[in-house]
Nucleic acid binder design. Structure first.
Length: 419
RNA sequence: CGGGGUAUAGUGUAAUGGUAGCACGAGUCUUUUGGGAAGAUUUAGUCUCGGUUCAAAUCCGAGUACCCCGACCA
């Protein structure tokens, strides 16, 4: 897969947008990855969408690996079921986007999907033989945040992976819940922020006493967590007290830090299954409510977090697993031999199956191409120029390295393919 | 939702109540090409509604949008 930068409709910008302060919004906007449509609502442009899709696929693979079955539910919500769980009233849930039909009846735009999936499953779950299982989707959520902020970190409309688990009892649920933690950490590991991400003990919100968050250390995070270094887990400030420390059996050896919540998993118990009558019959024909859990990851927030956590003062540093392209090839100058050489390299890398962005733009100075390459943040930068040709190869530089080196085409292919 | 701030060209910014200017971008031409090149030339703007005034980007009021702090955050 390759793309010519001369044909890419987006452009990079030198100026920082006046209405964006957060690093993720600044860099992603300057690089042409995203476009702000409204406060808390961003369009994804070609480069940004490629990142989103890669993140989604990693999440998808890890959810599939623990048996999640992918579906896609509707954004439009029926108030009836939300009234049954007492989550329709604006007093109870204050982030609803509600709208009226022509006949004056109301609909909501979904901010989460416990209610509709629970109702839907009453049609399919009857017996203990049907359990356990889990279902997930990657779907757009709407939340009328009182204060959208920080670019992709807190939006009003955003893609979220939400998975729901359905078990016979708490014990079966706990097994899946623990398994989900592993899947979540795999996701963050693969996306390149695993070393910064901690399973964090947190408040359970309106569902239960406690839940687990996945917090990625970043100075710009809005949460405060206490990391227990030896045990490699953390406690959210909101529940950081002696009782919790004792429950978890942790010694008093914590480091306070700011972090971004990139995931959250909850034990729901039977709260929704009872309200919406999602029951199953056991071996003796006795009815029981299904024991549920819910597990969320914000896709856009994850992308924003990577930028917050991994960029430098020149721009973004994409981990290879989610970079829009693996390689950024720059052709410098208007020398015909150089252009031909760059074209050939582009074509051969492309046909070798390497994802490559080719800066084939004419009349753009070397400095500008370098600056763009740093801003856009592909893992490998290749330069073809009169200088590199004189040196008998191609200059290759990792985004994380200061200086490049001249390599032959064979070395190049070997390095990049194996990486 | 409480508090504060801002709104001028595609972007970033100037302008005592008195000629809306600069830079970047974009278009054309020429010269350039290893860390955001140079010259010539062209292009395009005062958020909305109302008020004060001979005169409003500027002062006043309302609205809207956006940003920041806090609260909230399934």
């Amino acid at each position: 897969m390759g793309m010519r930068q001369s044909l890419l409709f987006t452009k990079t910008r030198k100026e920082v947008p006046a209405d964006e302060v957060s690093k993720n919004a600044e860099l992603l906007t300057r690089g042409g990855f995203i476009h702000k449509e409204l406060a808390g609502a961003y369009a994804y442009l070609p480069l940004g969408l490629r990142v989103v899709k890669k993140i989604e696929n990693i999440i998808r693979e890890e959810m599939n690996a623990i048996g999640g079955q992918e579906i896609s539910m509707t954004a439009l919500q029926d108030p009836e079921i939300w009234k049954k769980t007492d989550r329709w009233d604006d007093e109870k849930v204050d982030i609803w986007f509600k709208t009226k039909l022509k006949n004056e009846s109301e609909l909501g735009l979904g901010c989460t999907h416990e209610e509709p999936i629970t109702r839907m499953l009453t049609e399919y779950v009857n017996s203990y033989r049907d359990l356990p299982f889990s279902v997930y989707q990657i779907q757009t959520k709407f939340r009328n945040e009182l204060r959208a902020k920080s670019g992709l970190l807190r939006g009003r409309e955003f893609a979220m992976k939400d998975l729901y688990s359905f078990c016979r009892d708490e014990e079966e649920h706990n097994q899946f819940y623990e398994k989900s933690k592993g899947a979540y950490m795999n996701v963050f590991q693969r996306i390149g922020i695993g070393h910064l991400t901690y399973v964090t003990f947190a408040s359970g919100g309106m569902f239960s006493k406690f839940s687990h968050e996945f917090q990625t250390v970043a100075s710009t995070g809005e949460d405060t967590i206490y990391i227990h270094q030896e045990e490699n887990i953390a406690i959210n400030k909101e529940v950081f007290n002696d009782e919790v420390k004792k429950t978890l059996g942790l010694s008093d050896n914590f480091k306070e830090t700011k972090a971004i919540e990139v995931g959250n998993i909850f034990t729901l118990g039977t709260r929704f299954s009872e309200a919406l009558e999602l029951n199953f019959k056991d071996e003796d024909g006795k009815m029981h409510p299904v024991f549920m859990g819910s597990y969320g990851i914000g896709v856009g927030r994850l992308m924003g977090t990577v930028v917050e956590a991994l960029s430098d003062d020149k721009g973004i540093i994409w981990p290879e697993s989610i970079a829009p392209f693996k390689v950024h090839l720059l052709s410098l100058g208007d020398d015909e031999a150089v252009k031909t050489e760059a074209e050939n390299l582009y074509n051969s890398l492309k046909s070798a199956g390497i994802e490559i962005l080719f800066d084939d733009r004419d009349g753009i100075s070397a400095g500008e191409k370098f600056a763009d390459a740093d801003l856009l943040g592909m893992p490998y930068r290749l330069v073809v120029s009169t200088r590199s040709m004189k040196d008998g190869g191609v200059e290759m530089k990792k985004r994380t390295e200061e200086k490049g080196k001249i390599v032959s085409k064979d070395e190049l292919l070997a390095t990049i393919k194996n990486a």
